[in-house]
């Protein structure tokens, strides 16, 4: 499929002989569901290299950049699209319908970015009911002024007559793979240009990893982190800090210093961008290949190293130390809650 896109790179001689024809171009579509738009930006971040690509692809659908309608997609032959890139989790009926439609028209679907991959940050709303979520967003956040308690509704009449509708919310934000089958994943919030290019390269080479995650490493961030050597052999954390509560020397392991860093369970390949500016890893590249549940794996690890130095038999000491971990569910599952076994369990019930 994407051989068409980059095949020329491999065989320059062939490239020269090949006559470009419209029908030979790689047919693609891009769609965003519940995401912030960062993933679309990420595509632009590929910069000049993008021009090489644009020349060889046909974009048949890309709501954010190209003027196309759903009906245009409906009109396409099934499996006409070579590659469909979808970012964002699925949280309303419209998104659900559109991705199903795209699936029908696609040879390959690529879950692009953390939200499509695992549900992402919007997926943390699965911790609450729709009602509680709306209550919070429209009425009680500190920056909200809404004395009339205006709330978007599925149907609204327009002042001049007629009505507009909003797609109803799904009770939960879902990772793309729970709505349609997904062929490949490109992780990251957003995926780095390097990751995107590497993902395309992997696709072209045909040497696709077993778990179909493209562009990222199969070793954890610790494996690439310069600070790993500072990690003491007798590591033990007695209390935890939020990022603003402690000054961390730039060469010290953040976790060893008591700042929650998801590096140990997170795939490398992100260039340690956060670590390099003294911020802990938040896990956007997703879990290592053998992990069943990213948050639980991190939980098991962090609970084990807490107070691991002088193991006190005092249960209250352990409780106090564990209590310094603020918002464990939001921290351990920042990007992966909808993909977690716990959320799946709750949803099944």
């Amino acid at each position: 499929m994407l051989e068409k896109l980059f095949g020329q790179k491999k065989q320059k001689a062939e490239q020269e002989q090949e006559v470009k024809q419209e029908s030979q171009k790689v047919k693609t579509a891009f769609y965003w569901a519940t995401s912030c738009g960062g993933c679309e930006e990420a595509i632009l971040d590929v910069r000049e290299k993008l021009f090489d690509v644009l020349d060889k692809i046909d974009i048949l659908f890309w709501p954010v950049a190209v003027d196309t309608k759903y009906s245009d997609v409906e009109a396409l032959e099934d499996k006409l699209l070579d590659a469909v890139f979808i970012n964002g989790g699925i949280s309303n009926i419209e998104q659900k319908e559109v991705v199903k439609l795209l699936r029908k028209k696609a040879k390959a679907v690529i879950a692009f970015g953390s939200c499509a991959h695992m549900g992402g940050i919007p997926g943390l709303r699965n911790l609450y009911s729709i009602e509680d979520g709306l209550e919070r967003v429209y009425f009680t956040t500190p920056s909200t002024y809404n004395p009339e308690r205006a709330l978007p509704s599925e149907k609204s009449e327009l002042p001049g007559g007629g009505e507009v509708t909003l797609p109803p919310l799904l009770p939960n934000v879902l990772p793309l793979e729970e709505v349609i089958s997904v062929d490949f994943y490109v992780p990251g919030c957003p995926p780095l240009p390097e990751t995107i290019l590497k993902a395309l390269e992997v696709l072209l080479s045909g040497d696709i990893p077993e778990d179909n995650v493209l562009g990222a490493e199969s070793k954890s961030l610790c494996n690439f982190c310069d600070r790993n050597q500072s990690k003491p052999e007798n590591l033990s954390v007695e209390r935890y800090y939020r990022v603003h509560e402690k000054a961390i020397p730039p060469d010290k392991c953040l976790l060893a210093e008591g700042v929650i860093c998801l590096g140990p369970v997170t795939r490398g390949g992100c260039g340690e961008k956060c670590i390099n500016v003294n911020m802990p890893c938040r896990g956007c590249y997703g879990p290592l290949p053998d992990i069943d549940d990213m948050g639980l794996r991190f939980l098991s690890n962090i609970a084990s190293i807490t107070c691991a130095g002088e193991e006190s038999t005092d249960e209250s000491k352990m409780r106090d130390a564990i209590a310094t971990i603020k918002d464990p569910v939001g921290t351990f599952y920042r990007f992966s809650y909808p993909d977690s076994s716990i959320n799946k369990l709750v949803r099944r019930r």
Partner: peptide
């Protein structure tokens, strides 16, 4: 193949059986 050399097993082993060598 799976080890990322993150070294967390080392402080956890009560017998000093886990060691870190060559990453």
């Amino acid at each position: 193949e799976k080890c990322s050399g993150c070294k967390f097993c080392i402080p956890l082993c009560p017998y000093g059986a886990a060691v870190y060598e060559e990453e």
